Computed example of a mutant assay.
Amino acid sequence: MAYKKKETEPRDYRQELTDKTIIKIEGMITQMDDNPNLKWVKSWFTCDARPKNPFTGTIYKGINLISLMGEDFNDNRFYTYNNIADMEKQRAKNIFDTNTLNAQLESKKITHAEYDVRIDVINKSFKELEDKGLEDRTKPLFIMKGSKSNPVFKAMQVPISRKDDNEQSEDQINEAPEMIWKQVFSGNVFNATQISNIKPIQIEKLNFIPLEEAEIHLKAMIEKTNLGYKEVDQTRAFYSVKDHAITMPLRENFKDENSFYGVLLHEIGHSTGKHFNRDMSGGYGSKSYAKEELVAEISSVIMSADLGIPYDSSQHENHVAYLKSWVSALKDDKNFIFQAASKAEQSVSYQHEIRHTFKQELTLKNEHRNDLKQDMKATPLPEKIKSLSMSR
């Protein structure tokens, strides 16, 4: 008797990621319920740097930050299974080719000059592997047994599903389906700490001083977006949609400068809502309010990483009711966190663009001032006096 093979439903990675996020936030809520004086000290974003793939050079954005930074890894490097397989294949080939060359040189089948040329090619290949993370040339690369992968997503155009297909006319059935952009499951990656023979992470050197860059960022947002800003002696930080203005507590009220800028970046994230026409009309506890708060929180995490500022969630007004609004929205809609992450990345890109433009204009102004100073130095004093008198 033939048995029909049972069809398995495809994994719902969007729901899995949403469920994983809910579990983390509910864990925080439980801790805070047990101790009402406890602040939300541990964020569900563990790593302070944007995740990246050293093999491809990919810098992960949007929902992939949620998927990867939310794991309990302090290392921000992630590889696919094929990345590691390709690296190991090349490493093993290099070892084989090196041994072959050494044997040929020893048996005098090749000259020292030929050896030097060919070994140089092999060493360059090794150097490329080391730039991608290889630690020891003589040891194999492999994903450690028991390691769990982490999903990553990519934007793709997918057709909008039609619920009433049976009721459509023949013309409607034959016409091209309407397409929309959507983040869909792309594959799985493994953290560098899950891979044997990957070198320990090294702190990346920034080409700017983090706190100075954060202050430039604030000035850029004020000048280029007409953002109002003030610091007052109070405990609450907030953004006013009506006034397009941020109010912050006094800097000395924060435990350190990193904490101050972490909260500030959250409020700056809110301030970009006006530019993108985000729904900021929802009252406390509503789904739209929860989404906007999540957008601001994610954008502050990303901006903190990009500006080299350690993220500290304990300074935010994060209490149980605040977190419960997120959980409620997440349970209602598995797409909620994807939408919030997309809007947060959009906000961050816009902020970087504003700061970049501001710094370019600042550089041009400084260069212009320096040119004027040089001109004044180069012009003889009598000519300067004559020029000034003629201009009156």
Rank of each mutant, 00 (worst) to 15 (best):
K6I: 09
K6M: 14
E7Y: 12
M28W: 09
N37P: 02
S43M: 04
T46H: 13
F55S: 01
G62R: 00
G62T: 10
E71C: 13
N74T: 12
I84S: 04
E88Y: 01
K89D: 12
K89A: 10
I95P: 01
D97Y: 02
Q104I: 08
S107K: 07
H112Q: 08
E114S: 00
Y115W: 05
V117E: 15
D120H: 14
I122C: 06
S125N: 14
K127N: 04
K132C: 05
G146E: 07
V152R: 03
A155S: 14
Q157W: 14
I160N: 14
I160T: 13
D165F: 15
D165R: 12
S169V: 09
E170Q: 04
D171Q: 03
N174P: 03
I203M: 14
I209D: 10
P210D: 11
A214Q: 06
N226R: 07
Q234W: 12
Y239Q: 04
S240W: 03
V241F: 02
T247M: 09
N253C: 12
N258K: 09
H266S: 09
H270C: 04
N277V: 02
M280F: 01
Y284A: 00
K291H: 13
V295F: 08
A296Y: 08
E297K: 03
I298N: 00
M303K: 07
D306A: 11
S313A: 12
H316I: 05
V320E: 09
V327R: 04
K331L: 03
F336V: 05
S342I: 12
E345Y: 14
E345L: 13
Q346L: 14
T363C: 14
I385C: 11
R392M: 15
